[in-house]
């Protein structure tokens, strides 16, 4: 899933300082699961905004709403009435949702309430790790199912580097060296031989370096305006 982190409240406050009628808008998918963009956060942020305005003697109105996925025209259309009644929207969806909102409601100011961070998942309750870099050319088949592009600090293809010690990455003691993990995994699977072959430079044409990327599913395209 997409993992996003809450923006510091000070930053949010600054962004919204000139608006009087604000909607805090959650998204019911990834960001809900990572506890930064769901209904609970909507309520929390709204409460903060109201209280902060009160402390500064400002009058504001804060609405709370949420939709299943902000990255779908139809779902954000469902809340059109609420949105168009506001001066500004604090979207706590990932960057995709924020942009959908901005495109859909060009007259309303849309602000991001989270920092979209990575694709990953919770490894334990409350702890999230990056797991995929969206390189567009998946190599997990050869690395024991562990991704060096997103999980090796240097995205090495022929790791581990000389900094790998005690299973930890040289960049941070907290970070496991994924190449050490790959080694162990391939060892378990009796595939260590794979690590003896030199992996040639990766073809990044499909990667984030070549954005914006686009995917077309010919068989599903219909000529119906959905926005």
């Amino acid at each position: 899933m997409i993992v996003a982190a809450s923006k510091p409240f000070q930053e949010i406050k600054q962004m919204l300082s000139e608006f009087r009628k604000i909607c805090v808008l959650g998204c019911g998918s990834c960001v809900t699961i990572c506890h930064t963009g769901g209904e609970k956060q909507v309520a929390e942020l709204a409460a903060q905004l109201r209280l902060s305005a009160k402390l500064e003697g400002r009058q504001i109105e804060v609405k709370e709403d949420s939709t299943l996925r902000q990255c779908e025209w139809e779902f954000i259309d469902n809340i059109r009435e609420v949105i168009e009644d506001c001066d500004a929207v604090l979207s706590i969806a990932c960057g995709v949702g924020v942009q959908y909102m901005a495109e859909k409601f060009p007259k309303i100011r849309i602000f991001p309430g989270v920092n979209t961070t990575f694709m990953g998942g919770p490894t334990e309750q409350g702890i999230f790790w990056e797991r995929c870099a969206g390189c567009g050319n998946c190599i997990l088949a050869t690395t024991g199912g562990l991704c060096p592009v997103s999980r090796c600090a240097k995205s090495l293809m022929n790791g581990p580097c000389g900094g790998s010690q005690n299973g930890r990455c040289e960049v941070s003691q907290e970070t496991p060296c994924v190449w050490n993990q790959i080694y162990d995994q391939l060892d378990t699977q009796q595939l260590l031989k794979t690590m003896e072959t030199i992996v040639p430079p990766k073809d990044w044409t499909t990667g984030a370096e070549n954005h914006p990327r686009k995917m077309v599913l010919e068989h599903l395209v219909v000529k119906k305006q959905i926005n």
Binding site: A153, K154, L156, M157, C161, V171, I198, P201
Partner: peptide
């Protein structure tokens, strides 16, 4: 060489390139 990670240096905010790694560099 692959190079020390930018995190250790005087510009930790820099974007690391790491387009290729040292083995690939040698080969190149």
């Amino acid at each position: 060489l692959t190079g020390d990670h930018q995190k250790f240096g005087d510009h930790p905010m820099a974007k690391g390139v790491f387009d290729i790694d040292s083995v690939q560099l040698i080969q190149m």
